[in-house]
Design a protein around this nucleic acid. Structure first.
Length: 483
RNA sequence: GGCGCUAUCGUCUAGGGGUUAGGACGGGUGGUUCUCAGCCAUCAAACCGGGGUUCGAAUCCCCGUAGCGCUACCA
């Protein structure tokens, strides 16, 4: 039988890293097994579900490349099937109507909790005589449908945790259908998973204690239970489950912060899973090829953004410049620096700029920022760079000499410009660094940049000379202004 | 409170009876060099505690402890 898995988020929030990781493992397993990945939106909580959240979740999944083969199905549209399932359980004798007042139940529960006693539903309505039930039913008394948890033990062989079991006496008779006729989570999930022929349920550890309830429902419905795999949770730096406070932000925020989807994908796959051979940088294809539940750990894993950033830098480096160009286009457009010629007649030049920048970039946003000085002459001089490298009163004279030398070179490539600079330094009787540092400020406004001759060539002779002039002028102005 | 899950460097992890307990991120130091990044080299850094079993336990078992999760007519 071919594998069918599903990701079933509820649209009460964005797709955060926890959800994304669950989706990702489902996706990997489906790909690995040549199975089907079903997407189901669990929007039965009409109080909290919001339509725009569904859109946001789909957006997040698309960005990460978590394509689904089927759906999205909407759970809210399947109420009739859920009710039918509930009726079937009732008919089979595994459920009973409960007339207890919810407010009343809640109070009892709270009282019990306050006095430190475990509370479980007391089965008051299970004890009701048949004729009393009939009487109440025909009088139209509001009632919910409760599952009658059988005696015994419920166990399963979890793909991650191995044999796991729960004593049924620790499970209370939970509600299947609310008094308004709407299904609760467990019924809806099991009913849907049966209808959608899900073979493997891969979800977070937080569902571990829900599993026996659901297995009991499969049994009551006379259906075989799927195989379960419970993934360890992703934790915040405080080792608690991710919250809005830290990390549980929309995955698309990582896009906004300059992360590549393949880097986040790679990172998330490594959170709680290891290929076992020590490799960390893995492409989607390599991940599919290597994925197996053998390598899935049981321990919650702390989300370490520094490692994500490192992986991002690795992916940036492995990326062809053409792809990088695509990736930074939006950022450049946002600052008005994007120009169609960058992928037209100036493409080769711009790709060389990106090539020079990519090894030193950890985020896509770094590339956009650092390429600005190649695209626009109107940059400011960084005050720290000025203070560090432009103090010497000799600099205007040195720069003027350098400019003259650079004007005269026959060609303008890295080798000739370097030779020109070093010869100039020698004839002036100063160290090459005396020219290099001010030149860097002249060309970039910064104290740090790629290799100076690389920058020089990429900026080009004309603009480089103008930038040197501008620096000399700047120094003149600031000196006369100061005195 | 009850039930459950988990436990190797700060973090992600490998290893599953005999290892100098390995790798990666991050940190330190040094090298390359025009700066930064990168790259290379190098250092520090861990088997939760206690009992068993065993010639031998980080590894298997038990008991603690701690952390986390679940405990709704939420999902």
């Amino acid at each position: 039988m071919s594998v069918r898995v599903r990701f079933a988020p509820s649209p009460t929030g964005y797709l955060h890293v926890g959800g994304a990781r669950t989706a990702l493992f489902n996706w990997l397993f489906a790909k690995k097994m040549g199975g089907t990945f079903v997407l189901r939106i669990e929007d039965t909580d009409f109080e909290r579900s919001r339509e725009e959240m569904t859109a946001a979740i789909l957006d997040g999944m698309r960005w990460l490349g978590l394509s689904w083969d089927e759906g999205p199905h909407y759970q809210s549209q399947r109420r009739d099937r859920h009710r039918e399932a509930g009726e079937r359980i009732l008919k089979s004798g595994s459920a009973y109507p409960c007339f207890c007042d919810p407010a009343d139940q809640k109070k009892k529960r709270e009282d019990a909790e306050r006095s430190g006693v475990a509370w479980r539903y007391d089965r008051a309505c299970l004890m009701l005589p048949a004729e009393e039930i009939q009487r109440r039913l025909s009088s139209g008394a509001p009632h919910a449908l409760r599952f009658k948890v059988p005696e015994g033990t419920t166990s399963w062989d979890d793909r991650v945790h191995g044999p796991t079991s729960f004593a049924n006496e620790t499970i209370e008779d939970f509600i299947l259908l609310r008094s308004d006729g709407n299904p609760t989570y467990h019924l809806a999930v099991v009913s849907d998973d049966i209808d959608m022929r899900i073979t493997d349920v891969i979800r977070g550890d937080d569902h571990l204690s829900n599993t026996p309830k659901q297995i009991l429902l499969y049994r009551a419905l006379g259906e075989p239970a799927p195989i379960f795999a419970h993934l360890p949770l992703i934790l915040g730096p405080d080792k608690k489950r991710l919250s809005k406070r830290h990390g549980a932000v929309a995955v698309t925020e990582y896009r906004e912060s300059g992360y590549l989807p393949e880097a986040l994908f790679n990172f998330l796959a490594l959170l709680g899973w290891s290929p076992g051979d020590g490799r960390e940088f893995l492409t989607r294809e390599e991940l599919i090829e290597r994925f197996s539940f053998e390598g899935v750990g049981k321990k919650g894993a702390v989300f370490d953004e520094q490692k994500l950033e490192w992986l991002n830098s690795q992916h940036i480096n492995a990326m062809p410049v053409a792809a990088i160009r695509e990736a930074i286009r939006a950022d450049l457009a946002a600052t008005g620096l994007w120009d169609p010629t960058l992928e037209g007649e100036r493409r080769a030049w711009f790709d060389a700029v990106l090539e020079a920048l990519k090894a030193r970039s950890r985020r896509i946003s770094d590339l956009a920022r650092d390429s600005a000085i190649f695209l626009d002459d109107r940059f400011d001089y960084n005050p720290e760079a000025v203070a560090k490298h432009l103090k010497d009163p000799e600099i205007p004279r040195l720069m003027t000499a350098l400019k003259e030398a650079l004007e005269r070179t026959e060609r303008f490539d890295e080798a000739t410009t370097e030779e020109a600079l070093r010869q100039t330094a020698e004839s002036l009787g100063v160290a090459a660094a005396k020219l290099i540092h001010p030149l860097r400020v002249a060309l970039t406004g910064q104290a740090v940049s790629p290799g100076i001759f690389t920058v020089l060539v990429l900026v080009g002779r004309d603009r480089a000379l103008r930038r040197i002039d501008r620096l000399v002028q700047f120094l003149k102005d600031s000196r006369s202004g100061a005195s």
